[in-house]
Amino acid sequence: MDVWLWILVLGVAAWAAHWGADQLLTPLKMLRKQWGLTASAGAAFLAIVTASPEVAVNVTSAARGVSDIGLGNLLGSNIISIPLMVTIAYFASRKRFKNNEKHQKHLDKNILVLNKRSISVLSLPYLGIIALVALLTLPKAWRGLQPVDGWIMLAAYAVFLAHAIIKGRKKGKNVEWDKKQIWLSVAGALAIAVGAFFIVKATENIVSTLNISEIVGGLFITGIMTTAPEIFKTWSVVKGGEVTAGTTSVIADNAVTMTVAFFPLALVTTPIEDFQLFWANLAFVGLMPLLYSLFVHQSKELHGFSRWQIFVFDAAYIVYLLIMVFFVLKLF
């Protein structure tokens, strides 16, 4: 098949996987209301579904013997997602919300407002997860992803989720379950599985045709494609007035990717072939939530991100691309 046809397959498969995730999202949203979870705690809970395309891609890549695609997807999606979603959320929030005078202050001061609780509930625990990944994979004696590492990371996600729920509980509400939505959820699960298979299959063929390594394909093809559909979800949630929920969900998604999506790659034992490429990418995976935490903590009366801080996020990703092109991959 022509490379352009595989690119088309990749795009359709990514859309199908995220459509499936959207169908699974409604039942979990209902559970969130029933259990009385706050926006930050709810984001950690809902991430089980919103990050499911990345998890499914890594399961498929491990099963097909191309775990480097999954490793690249794990790193690449976690680097681009925070600057991309924060930028999208900022522009989506530049509108007036009805009966919300407080939001007018955010507009006047050009701030993307966030609940400061998101630092303790989401971003700091996520930084802890990244530190744990570094500890398990960077030392020479432990280098690579091994089965024991996978079990440790699954336990880390259980702790992350429990911490988020305990820190963010309030009184629950009664909800009514819809049979139609349950069937749509089943269809969604199938769409995720089929979409993930074709994302990996398309990436395999594209990297083969372009003669690039699987991990690079995972970083810049699979990782970007699995993240891109989230743009529409973030835009729609923030534009609907749920600014904190729409912006913080990316942290929860990344936590799932670095733990649950880590597991299948570790289970089949994924070696680190290019150590410089791995540690450089892992460093930027950690830099993004570090900036997130520092900026929110630094903010005073109105917690969140100012315009110049949004620019720093985007500049950090551009610096990452330049380092990859000129110093790590040495394409020029």
Rank of each mutant, 00 (worst) to 15 (best):
T226N: 09
T226A: 02
T226R: 12
P229A: 12
I231F: 11
I231T: 12
F232W: 07
T234A: 09
W235E: 08
V237W: 08
V238C: 07
V238T: 07
V238G: 01
G240S: 08
G240V: 03
V243E: 02
T244Q: 02
A245Y: 01
A245C: 05
T247M: 07
T248K: 01
T248I: 12
S249K: 04
S249R: 10
V250L: 10
D253Q: 15
D253L: 14
N254Y: 04
N254I: 03
A255D: 12
V256R: 12
T257D: 15
M258K: 12
T259R: 11
T259V: 08
V260P: 06
A261Q: 12
A261I: 09
F262W: 11
L267E: 00
P271G: 04
E273C: 09
Q276V: 09
L277N: 08
F278P: 07
A280D: 11
N281H: 11
N281K: 09
N281Y: 06
L282T: 09
V285L: 10
G286K: 05
M288V: 10
M288I: 09
L290P: 01
L290W: 06
L290V: 09
S293T: 15
V296C: 04
Q298L: 13
S299Q: 10
S299T: 02
E301L: 10
E301W: 08
G304T: 02
F305T: 01
S306I: 00
S306R: 02
S306H: 05
I310D: 07
I310G: 01
F311L: 13
V312D: 00
V312S: 03
V312R: 05
F313V: 05
D314S: 08
D314Y: 01
D314I: 09
